[in-house]
């Protein structure tokens, strides 16, 4: 019984493996580091995990869920959203020129049209959700290829709103 995942940490992929030793004991490798834990399911989506070998080392309750292509885990009072290397996606204003809706909401204003030349950080779309407005800016300077947002329309989280073709940069 072995499970292997890869997550991004500090911009680099880290391999994490857990191998069942016996009973509820698991050998866990995080990159180069090796650990041993006991892990028991709690029935509420959580687990109890305790380091093996060091007596009176603190134990933890952890909860985890899949969220889209990410995995969210809460342990030791902190929530982490872990991204698999393959699942790394352009967020709004990413350097590849794709502007996505950061949350489900209503489009208030579209400030560009295909063919427009836009500057990096220029506001392209204004989206509203939960009584707050958010300006989505171009991640790169370039020319607008397509616009998938319409003022007054609703958009789902992650929907591509604008695609900007980056300007060829001088070598």
């Amino acid at each position: 019984m072995k499970i292997r995942r890869e997550y991004v940490r500090g911009g680099k992929p880290v391999a994490v493996t857990a191998e069942l030793v016996d009973g509820d004991r698991w050998r866990v490798r995080v990159g180069e580091a090796a650990y041993e834990f006991t892990a028991q399911a709690l029935g509420d989506g959580g687990i109890k995990l305790a380091p093996v070998g060091q007596e009176f080392e603190r134990s933890f309750v952890a909860h985890g869920v899949a969220a889209g292509s990410d995995y969210m885990v809460r342990v030791n009072g902190r929530t982490h959203r872990l991204t698999a290397p393959a699942g790394r996606q352009a967020s709004s204003g990413a350097a590849d020129g794709t502007v996505r809706a950061p949350m489900t909401g209503t489009v208030l204003d579209v400030r560009c049209k295909p063919g427009d030349r836009v500057a990096a950080d220029q506001t392209l779309v204004v989206v509203s959700a939960m009584k707050m407005e958010h300006k989505l800016v171009a991640g790169v300077a370039g020319v607008v290829q397509s616009v998938g947002a319409k003022a007054g329309g609703t958009v789902d989280q992650g929907a591509v709103l604008v695609v900007v073709e980056p300007e060829a940069t001088a070598p």
Partner: peptide, 24 residues
Amino acid sequence: QEGPEDLALAAAVLCQAVAPRSGG
């Protein structure tokens, strides 16, 4: 600003290995 500690990554993988149903 630092990334998730080893404990968090270990917990994530162990949750997937032993929690009865990932996703609550």
